[in-house]
């Protein structure tokens, strides 16, 4: 075993253990803010694994998109919905956890068995290494041109959809009288629509 391959092995072991432990912590930690920051660590170690797999461009895209955009978006969502609430206990939650854990362990066993029993066509062709970025560009503008353009349409649609979903419906004129509405009053008096009245939390009273 040469120095380079043993270095790769050490990097792989460190990155994959960080990945598995970090994702377990993301799922299991009670504090959601810790989960969000550990999710950034998981994304970074996935990017490190991409570097080990000769994919520097996708590693950079992973860091930019996931750590830079998705994780920040998740942190903003946590900040916007951050209210301390005591979740009511649900009967059979422990049983559900155990059952789903068993199902997931079975799925894991199945996937690992498939990975080890399938006769992969190894060794494949030699990886292109650093030329992969050039190949990706050639693919994106020749045979994958239609999905590439559709991706831009998808991003535009999701941007408009997110804006429409997340904005508040504030009417500029009163629907009934047709007079200009008092925006401050609307913001204060608007109570949540779908709360059950029998809830332990009472409906927000108007000031």
């Amino acid at each position: 075993m040469t120095v380079a391959s043993s270095t790769q092995l050490v990097c792989f072991v460190i990155l994959s253990s960080t990945l598995v432990l970090g994702s377990l912590a993301v799922v299991l930690l009670p504090n959601i803010v810790y989960s969000a920051f550990l999710l950034a660590g998981v994304f970074l170690s996935v990017a490190g694994l991409y570097l080990l797999l000769n994919a520097s461009f996708v590693a950079a895209a992973q860091v930019l998109v996931y750590v830079g955009a998705v994780n920040v978006l998740i942190l903003f969502a946590i900040m916007l919905v951050n209210k301390k609430e005591n979740l009511a206990p649900i009967p059979g939650m422990a049983l559900r956890r155990l059952l789903s854990g068993a199902v997931c362990a079975g799925l894991l066993g199945l996937l690992i068995r498939v990975a080890f029993t399938t006769p992969w066509a190894l060794p494949g062709p030699t990886p292109v290494g650093e030329d992969a970025t050039i190949r990706i560009g050639e693919h994106l503008f020749s045979d994958y041109l239609l999905p590439f353009e559709l991706a831009s349409v998808l991003l535009l649609m999701s941007m408009i959809g997110a804006i429409v979903l997340a904005r508040r419906d504030v009417f500029s004129t009163d629907i009934i009288t047709g007079e200009p509405a008092d925006q401050v009053l609307i913001e204060k008096e608007r109570s949540p629509l779908l709360l059950e009245p029998t809830d332990s939390a009472p409906l927000r009273s108007s000031p």
């Binding site: 955009a69 997110a162 804006i163």
Partner: peptide, 13 residues
């Protein structure tokens, strides 16, 4: 990655 970014934005909205 592109679809995941769009999904995250719409999901959080």
């Amino acid at each position: 990655i592109t679809v995941a970014a769009a999904e995250a934005a719409v999901g959080l909205a």
